[in-house]
């Protein structure tokens, strides 16, 4: 079995230990509130200890039955994830609906869509959903370039 197969159990184990360490820093509650029950830190620590035991079992299972190597995803997958990061940036600094339209357009192109179909989808969908939420469900969206213009 290649060391690559241990990466996932190792990540889970490290995260579990990190949670235990953070939990140990949590405040303690006075006995008159907690009584005979447990401190707030006890439960997450208990969960992570079980998780570490399960990780050990998982490693044993992996040694017994080596899993198939996961093949690398196509560019469309990683590109879609990158577009999500772009969405975060655009929503934070420009406008949520600009972010949605840009991501939809980019995603549609990445997935093999034609330019004009992608553009139409990217413009019409956010517009229709915005109108539905704004006029029917009366939800106010965060201020940005477009919403400032719409809300005034």
């Amino acid at each position: 079995m290649s060391p690559r197969h241990y990466i996932v159990p190792a990540i889970i184990a490290v995260c579990s230990v990190a949670v235990i360490l953070v939990a140990l820093q949590l405040d303690e509650s006075p006995p008159m509130i907690v009584g005979e029950s447990m401190q707030p830190r006890a439960w997450p620590i208990f969960l992570m200890v079980i998780n570490l035991i399960l990780v050990a079992v998982l490693v044993l299972q992996l040694r017994k039955n080596t899993p198939d190597t996961v093949s690398l995803e196509p560019f469309a997958t990683w590109g879609s994830m990158a577009l999500m990061i772009l969405f975060y940036a655009l929503t934070t600094w420009v406008d949520m609906f600009v972010g949605i339209a840009v991501v939809m357009f980019g995603m549609s192109l990445l997935w093999g869509g034609r330019i004009w179909v992608s553009a139409l989808t990217a413009i019409l969908t956010p517009l229709l959903v915005f109108l539905l939420f704004d006029l029917v469900l009366q939800i106010r969206f965060p201020r940005g370039l477009l919403t400032n213009w719409y809300y005034g």
């Binding site: 969405f87 929503t91 949520m96 949605i100 991501v103 939809m104 357009f105 995603m107 549609s108 192109l109 997935w111 093999g112 869509g113 179909v117 992608s118 989808t121 990217a122 969908t125 956010p126 959903v129 915005f130 939420f133 469900l137 939800i139 106010r140 969206f141 965060p142």
Partner: peptide
């Protein structure tokens, strides 16, 4: 086409999530 369907799912997901408690 999936190139239309899943970008629409993206838009519905983020707008729907925001609409719940108007929180980014």
């Amino acid at each position: 086409p999936m190139s239309i369907l899943w970008p629409v799912v993206f838009a519905l997901s983020v707008i729907g999530a925001y609409a719940l408690s108007s929180s980014l």
